Amino acid sequence: MSSVDTFVEDARAGLRRVSPQETDKLRHEGALLIDIRPHANRASEGEIPGALPVERIHLEWRLSPDSEWRLPGVSAESVVVVFCNEGYASSLAARDLQLLGLPRATDLVGGFRAWAAAGLPTEPGGQAALP
């Protein structure tokens, strides 16, 4: 196993990762879905309805419960599901959010592509990421 594989596995050890179907259930229950995919992927493949696009470079500032730049409504009690294309970068991002004070942060197993393959709803993409 490569060092990057070990790095991802270590990050996942502290997560209770969720399937596309469980993510959909959480979405309907009010969880915050965060799309960290690049704009080009969102524009070409679509988006999950209600998910907020946040570029990975801004993620910690927009979601840290004590950041003055956090998204409205984000608190230490928030359920946050982060997703990327296939579920690798999102595992690292979710781990980082837990370290910042969001113990209920996790990621979507298989990322957006697993969501779409499961036949769950998507909408045309291309919305700009939140600054």
Rank of each mutant, 00 (worst) to 15 (best):
residue 1 M to R: 09
residue 1 M to P: 10
residue 3 S to R: 12
residue 3 S to N: 12
residue 3 S to Q: 11
residue 4 V to N: 08
residue 5 D to F: 11
residue 7 F to R: 14
residue 8 V to D: 01
residue 9 E to S: 14
residue 11 A to N: 01
residue 12 R to V: 00
residue 12 R to K: 15
residue 12 R to P: 00
residue 12 R to F: 02
residue 15 L to K: 05
residue 15 L to H: 00
residue 15 L to G: 09
residue 16 R to W: 00
residue 19 S to D: 15
residue 22 E to K: 08
residue 22 E to H: 10
residue 24 D to N: 10
residue 25 K to T: 13
residue 25 K to M: 04
residue 27 R to T: 03
residue 31 A to D: 06
residue 31 A to S: 13
residue 31 A to Q: 09
residue 31 A to R: 05
residue 33 L to H: 03
residue 34 I to N: 06
residue 35 D to P: 07
residue 38 P to N: 13
residue 38 P to L: 06
residue 39 H to P: 02
residue 40 A to W: 12
residue 42 R to A: 13
residue 42 R to N: 13
residue 42 R to H: 11
residue 44 S to R: 15
residue 45 E to N: 06
residue 45 E to T: 11
residue 47 E to P: 01
residue 47 E to C: 11
residue 48 I to C: 05
residue 49 P to M: 11
residue 50 G to D: 06
residue 54 V to F: 05
residue 55 E to S: 13
residue 55 E to V: 01
residue 57 I to W: 03
residue 57 I to F: 06
residue 58 H to G: 02
residue 58 H to Y: 12
residue 58 H to E: 08
residue 58 H to N: 14
residue 59 L to W: 07
residue 59 L to E: 07
residue 60 E to V: 13
residue 60 E to N: 09
residue 61 W to S: 12
residue 66 D to S: 12
residue 66 D to I: 12
residue 69 W to I: 01
residue 69 W to H: 14
residue 71 L to F: 12
residue 71 L to G: 10
residue 72 P to W: 08
residue 72 P to A: 14
residue 73 G to L: 12
residue 74 V to Y: 08
residue 74 V to F: 09
residue 76 A to D: 10
residue 76 A to N: 11
residue 76 A to R: 15
residue 78 S to M: 05
residue 80 V to F: 08
residue 80 V to L: 06
residue 80 V to N: 07
residue 83 F to Q: 04
residue 85 N to C: 02
residue 85 N to W: 05
residue 86 E to M: 09
residue 90 S to V: 09
residue 91 S to I: 02
residue 92 L to Y: 03
residue 92 L to Q: 05
residue 94 A to Y: 00
residue 97 L to R: 03
residue 98 Q to T: 02
residue 102 L to S: 04
residue 103 P to A: 12
residue 108 L to Q: 09
residue 108 L to R: 01
residue 110 G to V: 00
residue 111 G to I: 01
residue 111 G to T: 07
residue 112 F to V: 05
residue 112 F to I: 06
residue 112 F to K: 10
residue 113 R to C: 02
residue 113 R to I: 07
residue 115 W to M: 08
residue 115 W to I: 04
residue 117 A to V: 01
residue 118 A to K: 04
residue 120 L to C: 11
residue 120 L to A: 04
residue 121 P to A: 12
residue 123 E to C: 09
residue 125 G to W: 09
residue 125 G to I: 03
residue 125 G to E: 08
residue 125 G to P: 09
residue 129 A to W: 07
residue 130 L to W: 13
